[in-house]
Design a protein around this nucleic acid. Structure first.
Lengths: 195, 195
DNA sequence: GTCTATATGCTGATAGAC
DNA sequence: GTCTATCAGCATATAGAC
């Protein structure tokens, strides 16, 4: 990145966020310096502060966007009717999001610990609202006798982890076929909950 | 046994490893300083270098121990006969290890990225040997018609992730009942693979 | 084995020129 | 909006006294 001077705000802003997202997810928040982000974007470190108030704010913005993007994907998804259809829709949104946005998904699962307490609380509120939707699906299906599961809370955590395993397993290899990965993940899910 | 007044090597060495393991797992390798480790152990930073050649070596030793301890637990486990019994034994070892050694398990899943290339290769060799054992169980059961699964490799990654989800879900709450968590995890596993 | 002191370099962030 | 220059602090690691 060899650019030396000039004003590029419409380009630089998004590039800063995309670069920070990838580096934070790959190496961890604490291991990445503002100078490193700037170098990959192609500006000097001081220029970053025209777009963010600091490193912490950059992380918070990225984690908030990851949470709201995932929730928005779930809100927008076609859901069908019945607990089984709802669970399939949820599984496909979760797996698909991890395939389409691997850095955001990885950041959200590993760097919450780097947030200041107030920022952490804000992100956890967003996240818990989303996870509660999954737990509600499991409870409803359990009450209706459609799912045979021991504890909805633990089952939800197990499924979320499994969806990460499936999606990242493919992401680590060759370019994944999204429909195929979603189908494999859903088949494991359907059988695990006894549907 | 006569000892110099400030000398506590039999105590300090294990304490350094235990403290570094917990801090690295909780906060990430890059976020933890040698001064912080020393402070929690109760010595000055310079004293750490009587036990390790540096921060990188400390991480490598901890990750190697985590891998060999897990493999040793699998080698020592009673396995029964048949693919189903083998898979149950493997699942219980994996879940039990995560309950008994949560910091080691978390470190192994998140801080490989902080290793130098040569060290990383050494750890990956240990890990892949262990994961291959799981994949072999799945392939054998698949060939025998005992498991109904799409792809052993991806199924293995999905199961490993799910076991983490189950074990850490409980670890995050009150003190887990090991047998109970293993049983819930095994039930999900058994159904997911169609056994 | 542990301490204190220190070498050397990198960190996040800011100031002011253009 | 981006640059250069800089500040104050903390990082890993080492040297030498005890």
């Amino acid at each position: 990145m060899a650019r030396t001077s000039g004003s590029q705000s419409a380009v630089t802003g998004p590039r800063i966020h995309a670069t920070a997202l990838r580096l934070f997810a790959e190496q961890g928040y604490a291991a990445v310096s503002m100078r490193q982000i700037a170098a990959e974007v192609g500006v000097q470190a001081g220029a970053l502060y025209a777009y963010t108030t600091g490193k912490q704010a950059l992380l918070f913005d990225l984690l908030r966007a990851a949470s709201t993007d995932l929730s928005a994907a779930w809100e927008a998804a076609p859901k069908g009717s019945g607990s089984v259809a709802h669970l399939e829709a949820f599984a496909r949104v979760e797996i698909g999001f991890r395939i389409d946005h691997p850095w955001a998904a990885r950041l959200a699962s590993s760097e919450l610990r780097a947030l200041a307490p107030d920022s952490l609380a804000a992100i956890l509120t967003l996240r818990q609202r989303h996870e509660a939707a999954l737990e509600a699906i499991l409870r409803t299906g359990q009450a209706a006798g459609v799912f045979r599961i021991a504890e909805p809370r633990i089952t939800a955590l197990a499924l979320l982890a499994m969806w990460s395993g499936v999606a990242f397993g493919y992401t680590d290899g060759i370019r994944p076929n999204r429909e195929r990965v979603e189908r494999i993940g859903w088949n494991l899910t359907r059988k695990a909950v006894g549907a």
